[in-house]
Design a binder for these strands. Structure first.
Lengths: 129, 129
DNA sequence: ATAATGCCTGGAGTTTACTCCAAGTCAAGA
DNA sequence: TCTTGACTTGGAGTAAACTCCAGGCATTAT
């Protein structure tokens, strides 16, 4: 597959895809004789992985580390698992923060809905901003 | 309360707190005769709001806009509600992405746990990276 | 009285993750 | 053959959100 197809599939720009490859967030993609990138199914999976992890704010650093471990072969299963567990921990913490913020937003919006009806903005106990 | 106390309470640096005030993510804090910031309960609530929203990736832009609307008085209830609803939409989308990533991580980690036991890394159907 | 400590302002510098660009190559169509 | 258009590389530029610093005032401790 061409870089264009991958871009469209994942909503990335060609620059971003090349950048990901350059810094090692995905492994090197093979080229045609002409020097043009030709993405295999394997490459696509790597792109998908990068997109998914990045969408949850996993830093490039971690992705690069993971790719490196994968390239070192089967002896790195434990290291990869540890890395993923560490990432999971951070994603979970972030997820919890998002939930807390959602609750706050829901509460505030409900207070504003009330205020729009009654003309008065009021908060339970402590108040809010 | 002093800037130091607020820093400790929310795990921010004094530079960050001053920066927030400077760009309008929180309203201007009153000073002592000596010119030193003296945070009221009200100010603290604004800081808490900023910290909570920022922790879910809400851009400064939105927070500044919200603070401005609040300062314009009761005529902006609807505008504030709309702004919060827009923010909620984005936070929800991000939350969903985090959930998807968590699932992927859980799956991968379970596969690695298996691999560590058996010595062989295998994926259901499509495979993964 | 003086030294230390803490806070002040305005502005410059840093980090992360892209994003853009110039100059060049290559394959396909007129 | 010549042009067009997509792709290449290496490197410079950008945006968002801090983070650091110099030079200066003010309160507190000795």
């Amino acid at each position: 597959m061409t870089i264009r197809e991958i871009c469209e599939k994942y909503g990335l720009t060609a620059d971003t895809l090349r950048y990901y490859e350059r810094i090692g967030v995905i492994p090197t993609v093979n080229r045609t004789k002409g020097g043009i990138r030709n993405y295999t199914e394997e490459d696509v999976k790597w792109v998908e992985n990068a997109v998914c992890m990045r969408s949850a704010g996993v830093p490039m650093e971690k992705l690069i580390e993971y790719v490196k471990l994968c390239q070192e072969g089967d002896s790195t299963f434990q290291a990869r698992r540890d890395l993923l567990a560490e990432v999971r921990e951070e994603v979970q913490e972030q997820l919890d923060r998002y939930k807390t913020t959602m609750e706050r937003l829901n509460y505030k919006i409900s207070r504003y809905d009330e205020a729009i009806k009654t003309g008065v903005l009021s908060w339970d106990s402590e108040g809010c901003k």
